[in-house]
Design a protein around this nucleic acid. Structure first.
Length: 422
DNA sequence: GTAACTTCGCCGATATCTCA
DNA sequence: TGAGATATCGGCGAAGTTAC
């Protein structure tokens, strides 16, 4: 366990306290940009302290980002993160090691954050969900409004899905309670979170008393994702030359429930991986879905939810081989598909062009309209019949040659510039 | 009838909600 | 407090629809 003496953490209320409302980016982010678009998913529920909002995807993301920011402040000058942070799809939320440490060994952190506690009568409790799947990590639970923070070994939470911490209860004791040193001031008593992080790293490095917390290599932490996510990650890495050519530095959207995957400056990218889908008379075709599953069923995205759709090449090569085998069984020609095993093409569609393709709704009222996705051609030099919609999509297809990447970058930049003019 | 293209529904993983 | 239900994601593959 992680001994931390109980302290009186600062609470919300006095305007100049470290956790006063105006200091929380939540108060800004909740009503700006993306958050506003998802206001429809927010509802209010009663608590004894008044109306408490259920958070939208953007708001949840803001809560997590704020918790990360607090931890980054806490470790400043003592510990560092990898130069490229872990993808949001990775199992660990953060990876830390002491500054000056050259070893590729990182302390994996699972971060659980909540906006604030639930007041029930005279007591208050905080709820953190899905805490039981991280036996080899340090689990940090943060409540932003009260500035409270707890540290647990993942192993100690392994038996439970939901962690409910009641003030001064079973989970709110010396073994788990911490404080943010930068905000505690004269109230700082006992061990701070930064000491917990440093000592846990040291204990795990020695292999002693780390309660199952294990230092890991960065490559391992980056690849610790599920199959579909790793395909997405593969596509993203494959498309890096495009971002380089466009002079863009994409960062993870940070939340899988947002309608976009990457953010480069203020450009929102939706990243998709196409899949070999069927074998037509002139060879295999890929398909990419351009809809999302929402509570009301499968619906197209709406203009503004993302700016650019990036479609990576198909990676389901086993299916391609099966499709080819079936094609041959039906008496088709023996076509060489070995060159298709090395991905070459990708597609880029600006939202304005997707509206024309019927794959993006102009506003939520038109969510019923449009196609579920589109077939795409990833083979060079195919002959088409006139009027083929797949052929009409070829101008949006690019490859990784310098000339093509330049064209792709130019297409995106022009479209974004035009959008800004309007 | 066939080729071209689209739609539907399943899978596994994960997050969130509800209720006992 | 926790378990089960529900929602959402990306990926996948087969079946359905449309046009000629």
């Amino acid at each position: 366990m992680y001994p931390c003496r109980i302290i009186s953490a600062p609470t919300v209320g006095p305007p100049n306290t470290p956790f006063a409302p105006q200091h929380s980016p939540l108060r800004v982010n909740f009503f700006s940009g993306a958050a506003r678009r998802f206001s429809g998913s927010v509802f209010r529920e009663e608590t004894s302290v008044g109306m408490k909002q259920r958070l939208s995807a953007a708001e949840r993301m803001a809560v997590e980002h704020e918790a990360k920011r607090l931890i980054r402040c806490e470790i400043q000058g003592l510990m560092e993160e990898p130069s490229v942070p872990l993808p949001h799809s990775a199992k660990a939320d953060m990876a830390l090691r002491p500054i000056g440490c050259e070893d590729d060994l990182w302390l994996p952190l699972q971060l659980k954050a909540t906006r604030g506690g639930v007041h029930q009568g005279k007591s208050v409790y905080w709820v953190f969900r899905n805490v039981g799947c991280y036996p080899d990590m340090l689990v940090i639970c943060v409540s932003l409004e009260e500035g409270k923070v707890w540290a647990f070994s993942g192993r100690s939470l392994q038996e439970q899905q939901t962690l409910r911490i009641t003030a001064h209860g079973k989970h709110d004791g010396e073994h788990s309670r911490c404080f943010f040193e930068r905000h505690a001031g004269q109230f700082a008593v006992g061990r701070s979170l930064r000491h917990v992080l440093l000592s846990t790293y040291a204990e795990a490095a020695r292999g002693s008393d780390s309660e199952g917390v294990t230092l890991q290599r960065l490559k391992y932490l980056r690849e610790q994702v599920c199959g579909s996510v790793s395909t997405e990650e593969e596509t993203r890495e494959w498309l890096q030359p495009f971002f380089d050519a466009a002079g863009l530095t994409p960062v993870d959207a940070g939340c899988s429930t947002l309608p976009y995957d990457l953010l480069a400056g203020d450009i929102k990218f939706q990243l998709k991986t196409s899949a070999w889908n069927n074998w037509t008379g002139y060879g295999p075709l890929a398909f990419v879905s351009t809809r999302r599953k929402l509570s009301g069923g499968i619906r197209p995205y709406v203009v503004g939810e993302y700016d650019v759709l990036l479609v990576g090449p198909p990676r389901n090569f086993e299916t391609l081989q099966l499709l080819r085998a079936k094609h041959i069984d039906r008496g088709g020609q023996h076509t060489d598909i070995s060159h298709l095993l090395v991905p070459r093409f990708f597609y880029i569609f600006h939202s304005s062009d997707l509206v024309r393709q019927g794959c993006l709704a102009l506003d939520p009222r038109h969510r019923e309209l449009g196609q579920l996705g589109m077939s795409l051609d990833f083979i060079e030099g195919r002959a088409y019949k006139s009027g083929s919609v797949i052929q009409e999509r070829l101008p949006f297809r690019f490859d990784l040659t310098a000339t093509s990447l330049e064209k792709a970058a130019s297409y995106v930049q022009n479209k974004i510039a035009m959008a800004h003019c309007y």
